[in-house]
């Protein structure tokens, strides 16, 4: 069994090296196909992160009048809390607002100075409302827009549904284009693998003929070509794994700039999903290449 494997591997490496240029082209095409697939995964991960980041930034604030009494505020708070789109309502009193404002602007003496000169607390009490889910945010915002209460001074909604929609649109477009690219590459690599196996069979027609003649079993005749296809797959996958991390580390700083304040770790994503991503891709690429070479072998290396 070991001997069999060894001999098959030897024959297979002979195939690969005898048509070394064709092998290089084959592997290059496979690498490009895998690269396009992984790039699409990267885009997916980034856009997913972008969506999460934007969703996290949903702010729904109701600023209340300075004259509103504690009682009125608490009753409004509990009324709002009864809405099903609301997860919780956080009441920030004038004093708390001032404290956190001071804290935020600690390093900004001009603002602190201006505040001191004003002599009184210019901030209003605030209700900070968390929607029960980001999907329900637009609905909640609509309700709050029309909510009648004489203690509400102003309303502040960062309506990010437009941004979300934009991100979704861009992601959809990228996905569509990416799918086309992937299909093109997958079909191309199928054809290329099929053809390189065919050429390998052609260059080895004497050997194949002699193997047949002396009674080599079928597996000895076609296995080397199948093994070559597997070696192409493993090799190109290896190159992708080795090349993709540097590529991601080039990307990472840009992402960090783009997602300020939001923790995005694309390398970490690929690391923690290593087998789900690269393992699955390896299986798929082997499957596809073995199928292509089986077809070639069936047609051109009859026993």
């Amino acid at each position: 069994m070991f001997l069999f494997l060894f001999r098959i591997l030897k024959l297979s490496f002979q195939d690969i090296f005898r048509n070394i240029w064709l092998s290089i082209v084959t592997v290059t095409i496979l690498i490009l196909a895998l690269f396009s697939i992984n790039s699409l995964i990267t885009v997916q991960v980034i856009s997913q992160n972008a969506i999460e980041a934007v969703k996290e930034k949903i702010d729904i604030n109701l600023y209340l009048t300075n004259t509103a009494s504690e009682e009125q505020i608490l009753s409004l708070k509990s009324q709002l809390e009864e809405l099903e789109q609301v997860k919780n309502v956080n009441y920030i009193s004038k004093q708390e607002a001032l404290l956190s404002f001071r804290e935020k602007n600690e390093k900004n003496p001009e603002i602190i100075q201006a505040l001191r000169e004003l002599g009184k607390n210019p901030l209003s009490p605030t209700l900070v409302i968390m929607p029960s889910s980001s999907e329900q945010a637009p609905e909640l915002i609509n309700i709050l827009r029309g909510y009648q209460s004489n203690i509400i001074e102003s309303r502040d909604f960062t309506d990010n549904s437009i941004i979300l929609e934009k991100i979704n649109n861009i992601t959809d477009k990228v996905n569509q284009v990416g799918m086309v690219i992937i299909i093109v590459f997958v079909v191309t690599s199928l054809i290329v693998v099929y053809n390189s196996i065919r050429v390998a069979i052609y260059t080895h027609r004497r050997e194949i003929n002699i193997m047949r003649l002396v009674g080599a079993s079928g597996s000895f005749i076609y296995m080397p070509f199948i093994v070559s296809a597997i070696i192409y797959s493993i090799f190109s996958m290896g190159v992708i794994v080795a090349a993709f991390y540097p590529f991601l580390s080039l990307l990472q700083p840009y992402l960090e700039v783009f997602f300020v304040g939001y923790n995005i770790d694309i390398i970490g994503y690929f690391f923690s999903n290593f087998w789900q991503i690269f393992g699955l891709e390896l299986l798929l690429v082997i499957l596809v290449n073995v199928l292509a070479s089986l077809v070639a072998v069936r047609r051109y290396a009859k026993i």
């Binding site: 001999r7 002396v214 009674g215 079993s217 000895f220």
Partner: peptide, 18 residues
């Protein structure tokens, strides 16, 4: 096979028959 010696040609026939 031109790239194998006579012995290797004969051995090849045995190798591919395990």
């Amino acid at each position: 096979l031109p790239k194998k010696t006579l012995s290797e040609n004969i051995a090849f026939a045995l190798q591919v028959c395990s």
